[in-house]
């Protein structure tokens, strides 16, 4: 699972929908891998409006990277170094194995073989 995807997913339990704590999930025991892709600034710029900066910072910190500015920097579009850093973080950083926990309900999801599993057990799905 790409780092980028951590910015898109929350807890799947319905009763967590209303809680701000259900996004982003808390990432622990993660095995990371760098998978190189060609740098494509236009693509990154097109993704910028979709990103939740606070969640990027929080997940990066979970994974041991505390170098990101805490507020979204102005003019990322024109800052090539920043774009390259984001490219490497969002698109090239893969979580191969790991654990994602909802900060609201405490449910745990796993990433295995790079694929995150959001399936729910019956007592959480049937409700």
């Amino acid at each position: 699972m790409k780092f980028l995807t951590t910015n898109f997913v929350k807890c799947a339990v319905k009763s967590c929908d209303a809680s701000e704590l259900s996004f982003p999930l808390k990432y622990e025991e993660c095995e990371l891998q760098l998978q190189e892709h060609d740098f494509n600034p236009e693509f990154l710029i097109s993704m910028l409006p979709r990103l939740n900066w606070d969640a990027i910072v929080q997940v990066a910190a979970d994974l041991g990277n505390t170098t990101l500015p805490s507020t979204k920097p102005e003019g990322i579009e024109d800052n090539e170094q920043m774009l390259k850093d984001l490219h490497s973080l969002l698109l090239e950083t893969q979580i191969i194995n790991g654990k994602m926990t909802c900060r609201h309900c405490g449910h745990i999801y796993y990433i295995k073989d790079s694929i995150a599993n959001f399936l729910l057990p019956p007592h959480l799905a049937n409700s």
């Binding site: 699972m1 995807t5 898109f8 997913v9 929350k10 807890c11 799947a12 339990v13 319905k14 999801y109 694929i115 995150a116 599993n117 959001f118 399936l119 729910l120 799905a125």
Partner: peptide
Amino acid sequence: LCMDFTHNAF
């Protein structure tokens, strides 16, 4: 992602 569409995690 492995997901049940009716319990969507996006």
